[in-house]
Design a binder for these strands. Structure first.
Length: 486
DNA sequence: ACGACAGCGCATCTAA
DNA sequence: TTAGATGCGC
DNA sequence: GTCGT
């Protein structure tokens, strides 16, 4: 079974775009962040968030706190009247509530906590066009560095660390990346992405993902069956494929020990993985995985995959060229694709392929389609039930033997059910889906109503999602290597 | 007041 | 060589 | 920054 998963990445975060090129985030079903009743406040919080990100002693949780606050505010359908009002919704605490009050009172906020901060000049914090005057003067350099560092991180595989390294080495733009002095600072995987950065820096559309999906449908002839299910995430940087394979490898239990005991020190054991049904150390045979032989390699020879970024037994990453239609509505043929690739023409995207065993497909879908807030919630529910949830499924801690026992991972519905949740439609598993309804902040102390709201919606959407329910027959045994005919 | 805030795959480095 | 540790990205 | 202990 093969499905295309469009994953939400943080590319949608407002602050990743410098103000002067800020784009709308695309259609929303009700007014919120970009035009809603609290637009200005959200802008302000967004600035605070950017500030927190830029801070040298960066605290990621602080950034997250602002994200939460933004989310909560964006979810409100009337103008915020006080910080306390927001605070009551959960996820927002004293500090941000005070900032909101200051915003409403139209005065500059003075952090209670002694330290730092160039005070905002006395111009109103509202400044609806968002220029923060005085600050910019001496923060100019910082702002610029942040801009560059953000931009560099748009290249998949380049994270904050490498972006900063590059910046400090003097790299000031994406196009600089291919200059030898900077190119050499990249890992091989990053170099590949950098090479394609020019033709893959826009977001993936559903159509593109669909093209890839269609083009890959031939795989159904052996290893997989096509599955048109697709998560309709609004935007993403990657195309992600999930392929359900017929093997039944021994699953690796969660590595950390006992559950609720709150101090599970967790050294990471070395990496072993299953080839067929035997475990080998990761450093051998990386190209002998079924994933590589049966999926990646064929796709390469057919002019779809054009480069490898990383590869293992359960995940592969690389670059795919989006297949195109020629006139007449036909897909371009293999020869055409190969020649396009030779000339570096066409659109390229990073592609991730996840190769998951059948009994884990539901869990894998949840992990691949949920945004981190959603997954955090799922995880904490599992934890409260004395369970563990990961990409394989649900695990139960066996006290006597001191290990995790695999419970179940095949169907999303059942997993949600076990966790006491109603089915959550994939489209609702990400935080861009936050307008309209109620705020979806971190589950509050006892957010009973949160749940009920969810159930109401999900009952509706759950119905048409039979897709995961039809197992269908699949081929048995190890798929043959590259038997494809076009 | 203080610690947690997720956890893991793959690449690469280090040491035996 | 390779088991184990660490870095990095997600 | 926020939350729970």
């Amino acid at each position: 079974m093969l499905s295309v998963v469009l994953r939400q990445t943080w590319a949608c975060s407002i602050t990743r775009t410098p103000p002067h090129v800020r784009l709308r985030l695309g259609p929303r079903h009700s007014s919120t962040s970009t035009s809603g009743p609290n637009y200005d406040l959200i802008q302000l919080l967004t600035r605070y968030k950017a500030e927190a990100e830029a801070s040298d002693a960066r605290n990621p949780y602080k950034v997250r706190a602002y994200e939460r606050a933004i989310k909560v505010v964006a979810g409100m359908d009337e103008p915020v009247r006080s910080g306390g009002q927001v605070k009551r919704l959960g996820g927002v605490g004293d500090r941000i509530a005070k900032r909101i009050d200051a915003f409403i009172a139209n005065v500059s906020y003075v952090p209670t906590n002694t330290t730092q901060k160039t005070q905002r000049s006395h111009t109103s914090a509202v400044a609806d066009n968002g220029s923060d005057d005085g600050k910019d003067e001496h923060k100019d350099k910082g702002a610029c560095s942040q801009y560059v560092i953000h931009a560099l991180q748009l290249v998949p595989g380049i994270g904050r660390t490498r972006a900063e390294t590059l910046y400090h080495a003097g790299c000031t733009s994406l196009s600089d990346l291919i200059k030898p002095e900077f190119f050499d600072l990249l890992t091989p995987a990053q170099q590949i992405c950098a090479r394609f950065a020019g033709c893959m820096n826009s977001t993936v559309t559903l159509e593109e993902a669909e093209s890839v999906h269609v083009a890959l449908a031939f795989l159904s002839s052996h290893a997989t069956r096509p599955d048109t299910s697709r998560r309709n995430q609004p935007s993403s940087n990657d195309v992600t494929l999930l392929i359900v394979h017929p093997f039944e490898p021994a699953l690796k239990p969660p590595k950390d020990s006992y559950d609720s005991a709150q101090k599970p020190p967790k050294p990471r054991p070395t990496q072993f993985y299953a080839v067929g049904d035997t475990f080998v150390h990761f450093s051998q045979n990386v190209h002998n995985t079924a994933l590589f032989l049966d999926v990646v390699s064929p796709l390469e020879s057919r002019g779809l995959i054009v480069a490898n970024i990383s590869g293992g037994p359960q995940r592969w990453r690389g670059i795919v060229r989006i297949p195109e239609c020629v006139e007449g509505g036909e897909w371009e043929g293999r020869a055409e694709r190969l020649s396009q690739i030779r000339d570096q023409r066409g659109d390229y995207r990073r592609l991730g392929i996840f190769f998951v065993p059948k009994q884990c497909q539901g869990a894998a879908r949840i992990v691949l389609t949920g945004d981190i807030e959603f997954l955090r919630d799922v995880n904490s529910r599992a934890h409260r039930l004395g369970l563990r949830f990961d990409e394989y499924g649900l695990w139960k801690w066996i006290e006597g033997e001191g290990k995790w026992e695999f419970l179940y991972g095949e169907s999303e519905e059942v997993i949600f059910g076990e966790l006491g949740m109603d089915y959550v439609h994939p489209a609702r598993r990400n935080f861009t889906f936050l307008s309209g309804e109620r705020p979806r902040g971190r589950p509050k102390k006892n957010s009973v109503d949160d749940q009920s709201t969810d159930s109401a919606c999900n009952r509706r959407s759950g119905v048409d999602l039979v897709e995961t329910a039809q197992p269908g027959r699949r081929k048995r045994g190890r798929p043959r290597k590259v038997p494809l005919q076009e």
